[in-house]
Design a protein around this nucleic acid. Structure first.
Lengths: 183, 183
DNA sequence: AAGTTTATTAAATTTTTATTTAACAATTTT
DNA sequence: AAAATTGTTAAATAAAAATTTAATAAACTT
């Protein structure tokens, strides 16, 4: 490898690092640790990696890679791959951002809808009981009604969010917003 | 206030707390601190609050409320309100979740699109230079081409995300996904 | 303008979270 | 089956973040 090769190689690595840095930085917002974010961004430019390769590339410990990979698997941004002939596990980054988007947000929103709707349903029942309770004073009844209505109104949002998840999961959203439009 | 009032009042507060707990818990995922999440959820059941009322209600320090409120204002989930006759500042929670959703995700996605597209454009230029560089070895050129194409492919996603933001900001998305559909 | 109330900033502390080292368990090859 | 390699769990350490106390600045009232 001559001196010029080295220069080109350096330029190449530098270019990759720009993208790795940007992905890494924006992934912080996705609730993953800096190590996991960095790991994903690094894997984005590799076909597949073993835990040892990750450790070497990032200069971090193996358990850190292990937990990072697991977290990334949980949000479907990394998949385990099968490589015959090697006893080391191999992993590959999901490189299709549409799929990452889908997996991450659908999972997150479904959790939000489920948790909040459950709490809302329970609370609304409680409010009804307070309203029906003949010993409740008028001002308490009025308050209960107010909150009941406020929650009822909010349910519209959660139903909508649930519809959004469905349309993303089914791919229907791309009929409305095509993948190719601007250039 | 008699004993029965107290019972109804307790039921009422209990019901509110169920919702406050759920909102609070799911908001952790939105990158706000537990204190800020709790604060928002508490404010959700109030018309408006002063910093001192917040401190009293949550049993936390005033600077904690101050920073919490500011963080919530940044993501448009709390607005400052004007209350004549009071020298204390008053704040109100955004109770329309559609608006919160819009403000939060659009802001987040726009930042992601901007940062990553900038890095990608720069990196692609670098890859082109490596490809055009006559001193680059064939395998380095091949690598540069591969990465260039991978990034080009990913731009489709960022353009789409940008379109999604536009359709949310403009309200066009509600033509495709109406606010009222299920019951 | 001085005094009082309120909000914010700064520094310090506490708490939480991430990461590492070390031990263990599981798997595979010989 | 034994030895060796790999991956994961547990405990300990290190780093980061949230929260509080204390101090400062700003705004309003008298």
């Amino acid at each position: 490898m001559n001196e010029n090769n080295t220069r080109s190689r350096l330029k190449l690595e530098e270019a990759k690092d720009k993208v790795i840095g940007a992905i890494s930085e924006t992934m912080d917002l996705y609730g993953v640790t800096p190590a996991a974010a960095n790991l994903y961004a690094t894997m984005y430019f590799k076909d597949q990696m073993t835990l040892d390769e990750m450790r070497e590339e990032l200069g971090m410990s193996k358990p850190s890679m292990s937990t990072g990979v697991r977290k990334l698997q949980e949000i479907d941004m990394v998949k385990k791959t099968f490589t015959r002939g090697s006893r080391k596990h191999t992993y590959a980054a999901e490189k299709n951002f549409f799929r990452s988007f889908m997996a991450f947000y659908c999972q997150m929103w479904e959790r939000e809808v489920k948790m909040n709707l459950e709490a809302i349903e329970e609370a609304q029942e409680d409010f009804i009981n307070v309203i029906k309770d003949s010993t409740s004073t008028p001002d308490i009844v009025a308050e209960a009604k107010k909150y009941y209505d406020q929650l009822q109104e909010s349910k519209t949002y959660y139903y909508w969010l649930d519809d959004l998840v469905d349309s993303i999961r089914s791919g229907k959203i791309f009929e409305f917003l095509p993948k190719e439009s601007k250039e």
